[in-house]
Structures are given as structure tokens and as C-alpha cells.
Design a protein around this nucleic acid. Structure first.
Length: 211
DNA sequence: AACCCCTACAACCGCCTTCCC
DNA sequence: CGGGAAGGCGGTTGTAGGGGT
């Protein structure tokens, strides 16, 4: 038997990230996880890595697979039969592409910005957000504010999630979330800013009271 | 037992971004 | 600044396994 496996770096990384990593949860999605997944998907669209980032122990692939095999059918009941007939070739997540998906411009950050907030964010689980959404996050913290800033991060994360859920509950009632144009990119700025108000408040955590 | 259908999920693919020289 | 390498992501496919007939 030839034991030489033709694995490239990417394959190895993927294997680790999606399967071998001991931090990965193996149990089924709990109802709270499903609920959060639904809301996050409503808000973020098919941003599986971001969604996974809010679900401890879950990988983007896990989330994506779970969505495709479980939740997508609930979102679009006729999906299963369509897929069987190959009437649709796209992912069941296709409807989400109609969402006003937030597509912030990539932005790299220098490490000498006084407060290495993005590194801090990465450490507390905001890695994706910190690297991808830095463009809409203004960190004007001086070094003297960093300690306070870091101290408030965990509270901020809780508040962010809470705000997210509340915001979506309101959106559910109004029914406005998820309706938008195909070429949403060009008009994403407004929604981006509103969507990330919560993140903004997180970053301003050192300047306001924490409820 | 054999076959078919369906489901779940690991893996692959292609594209884009970031990093480094 | 340009180009190649590497990393990361979402979409899609392949396939093992379970259930039904």
C-alpha cells in the first residue's frame, strides 16, 4: 500500500481546520446554536466563517453543511426536491444572496497603531471581524485607553450578540431584513454602517457606560 | 441479499486577498 | 510597484452509510 498521500498545504490545513482540530464540537447543533445561526445568516448572508466565529467549536464547513442539509430546507421547503431533480445547481443558500450582504472593503492594519486592538480582538474571538471589518472600525484609542478597552471587550462581545439578536427580532417583525438588490455592493455602505453600529459601540466601550 | 434512494459531511475547486521579495 | 506564494473563503462535489423495498 502506498502510504504517500498527495496532500498539499491547503488540504492539510483544511483537514485540520475542519476535522482534526480538537476544539471542534462533534455533538449536534443545539437549539440555541440553531437560533443564533439563523439570525446570523439572516444578518450576514453566506459568511460562514463569520457565523462560525460566533459559534464556539463550530467550523465554517460545519455551519455551511448544517445549513445546507437542515436549515436551507426550512427556509426553502421545495429545495430538496429541486436539488434531487437538479433543477437548481446552486447552493440552497442562494436565496441569501439576495440579502443585503455586508461586503466591507478589505483593509490591512499596521501593528504600530498605538493600541493593537485588532490583535486583541483576534484573541477574544473577533479575529474575522478584526481583520475583515477593520475598515469600518475606527480605533482611535491611545495607549492609555487600551487597558480599559480590553477590559470592556468581553462585556462588549456579549452586548454585541445581544444587540444582534434584538436587532434581528425587530427586523423579523418588520420583515425588512433580507430584501435588497442583487447589486447590493454599491449600496452596502449604509447597511454596513448600521449593521456594525453594534461593533462600533463595542469599540467605543471605553467611552460609555456598560449596561 | 441486492438494489435504489437519500442524507450528512469531508474534501475539492476556483477565486480573491494578503504577504513578501 | 509588480509578481509569485501562501492563506482563506464560499460554492460545489463525491461518497460512505443508513433506510426502505
Amino acid at each position: 500500500m502506498d502510504t504517500r498521500l498527495n496532500r498539499c498545504r491547503k488540504s492539510c490545513r483544511l483537514r485540520w481546520v475542519n476535522y482534526l482540530n480538537p476544539n471542534i464540537k462533534r455533538e449536534e447543533f443545539g437549539s440555541d446554536e440553531v437560533d443564533l445561526l439563523l439570525r446570523l445568516h439572516k444578518l450576514l448572508g453566506n459568511r460562514w466563517s463569520l457565523i462560525a466565529g460566533r459559534l464556539p467549536g463550530r467550523t465554517a464547513n460545519d455551519v455551511k453543511n448544517y445549513w445546507n442539509t437542515n436549515l436551507a430546507k426550512k427556509q426553502e421547503p421545495c429545495y430538496a426536491s429541486k436539488m434531487r431533480k437538479r433543477e437548481i445547481t446552486c447552493s440552497p443558500t442562494a436565496p441569501a444572496e439576495k440579502l443585503n450582504v455586508i461586503r466591507p472593503q478589505p483593509r490591512s492594519f499596521s501593528s504600530n497603531n498605538g493600541c493593537s486592538s485588532l490583535n486583541v480582538l483576534s484573541e477574544v474571538g473577533f479575529g474575522e471581524v478584526s481583520t475583515k471589518y477593520g475598515s469600518i472600525i475606527t480605533c482611535n484609542k491611545g495607549k492609555e485607553k487600551c487597558d480599559n478597552f480590553v477590559n470592556n471587550l468581553m462585556d462588549g462581545e456579549i452586548m454585541w450578540t445581544k444587540s444582534l439578536l434584538e436587532e434581528n427580532q425587530e427586523a423579523d417583525a418588520v420583515g425588512t431584513v433580507g430584501t435588497t438588490s442583487d447589486e447590493g455592493d454599491s449600496s452596502s455602505t449604509d447597511s454596513m454602517s448600521s449593521t456594525f453600529e453594534n461593533l462600533g459601540s463595542l469599540f467605543n466601550a471605553d467611552t460609555r457606560e456598560v449596561d
